[in-house]
Design a protein around this nucleic acid. Structure first.
Lengths: 245, 245
DNA sequence: GCCTGTCTGATTGTCGGACAATAATATGCG
DNA sequence: CGCATATTATTGTCCGACAATCAGACAGGC
């Protein structure tokens, strides 16, 4: 009949107040926050309370510190910060590799399409360089995995769509461990990835959206075959090796 | 030449320590955290430090309070918590409606396909009920928008893929404001949405993945037309009305 | 002029203790 | 046993303190 009348502790209202200011762009990116003491004075709360509020903002990536710095600055959430949150959420939701793979398969062709349509010259060069780096690399499988992830990320950048950029990160992060196993166990994996990347780069260069999407579809389908050949059960849960940096 | 030798303040190491325990499932969902005093004793730090660490965990949705409760419990991040983080990140990355729309268009057909393949009877019923609710509603456009979002969310649930479930939320949240405008300004919008939903529900019922995906493709394409007809510039930035709950 | 060392003030990280409000738990009673 | 009441535990907030260190000023030597 009656809903509980809301009460929010001060540290929460405080962090929301500051967050709104940031989202509203009244506090602009790169700008330094007032000092803790100053915030405490202005909001008329204790510095401890201010600090609790700041920790919340800090962990949503809205404020951060410059390397070796002391004061807090307004920042936009980085790919890593968003990705970290999403991937740890997925970890706790008992996400399986096949779920992540399915999402990747659903979204990557769209990214490839967008990248082909809108890629800038610089983004194309970035993408091509990722592909070259992967192809040129014979060594450690860890590095190879990084290169593959970098390729996808570069494609996301090329699409010039922040949604794609931010979405890519957590998915790749969760797939990396199993991807490493594939590269280890499936002899032809490197060659197939290399070939797919090459075709995708070409299609993106030629602004041929449909071809790019098609190769991306094949590319992701290959991953699934990789799981089977490498004997990784599709129902393996991700993040068991700790989805953390 | 030299990389900075890392130092992390205690509140950070503390929050990471607890977070790892949660991610590693040593602290299971629903379990109560030790009290602040107890944590302070065990980690040999001050309670203030513990509290700062807890605020971080709280805002990543790893711990939370039960309604009207005092103690903290281990929780898995909810759709809302993840969605909030992602959508505020996108807001600060100057995401435009067309970007969100593009992502939606890329991912929704995949979701529809997955839902058609795997939907349970209950999930189908949920989905159908969302469609019925939208169709039956004549009134307020705010409610209509909610219904549309619910439909997408129900489809995500039906796909039984946590990635899709968590991805859907922030995208919809960002689209809602502009969607409201469309429903207001485009007379035939309701009818077209209703029809698309109906076809999708039917396809999902029949486990016809390709038809479901096709109708979803049309459905999302309709949104884009809606933007044009409603004279919403595609480059409008999302979240200007505050991407917050 | 530029680099180096030193000094000073400001700011953060951490601590200890305090207290009111209230949720959680035990206690007593019918 | 169920329910009201008293006790205790726990959180939210405050205050004050201090060491570490970062930022900037300032001077001296090459």
């Amino acid at each position: 009949m009656f809903e509980p009348l809301g009460y929010a502790p001060a540290y929460l209202r405080l962090s929301e107040a500051i967050r709104d200011r940031i989202l509203r762009r009244e506090l602009k990116e790169g700008q330094a926050l007032p000092t803790e003491t100053e915030l405490a004075r202005q909001f008329e709360v204790n510095r401890s309370t201010v600090r609790e509020a700041l920790r919340k903002l800090e962990s949503s990536g809205l404020v951060g510190r410059r390397a070796g710095g002391k004061r807090l600055f307004v920042t936009r959430p980085t790919r890593e910060s968003v990705g970290g949150g999403l991937s740890q959420a997925l970890t706790l939701h008992e996400t399986r590799v096949v779920d992540v793979w399915e999402a990747l398969q659903a979204v990557q062709p769209g990214i490839a399409r967008a990248a082909a349509l809108r890629r800038s010259t610089e983004a194309l060069e970035q993408l091509a360089s990722c592909a070259r780096r992967f192809a040129g690399r014979r060594g450690d499988r860890e590095f190879a995995v990084e290169d593959v992830a970098d390729f996808f990320n570069a494609l996301g950048e090329a699409s010039d769509n922040p949604v794609f950029v931010l979405l890519n990160e957590p998915l790749l992060r969760l797939l990396k461990p199993s991807l490493a196993v594939i590269i280890d166990r499936v002899p032809q994996a490197r060659a197939r990835i290399e070939s797919a990347q090459k075709h995708i780069v070409d299609a993106v260069r030629d602004r041929d959206a449909e071809t790019a999407a098609m190769w991306m579809t094949r590319h992701t389908r290959d991953f699934r075959r990789g799981y089977e050949v490498a004997c990784i059960p599709l129902s393996t849960e991700v993040g068991q090796d700790l989805g953390v940096a």
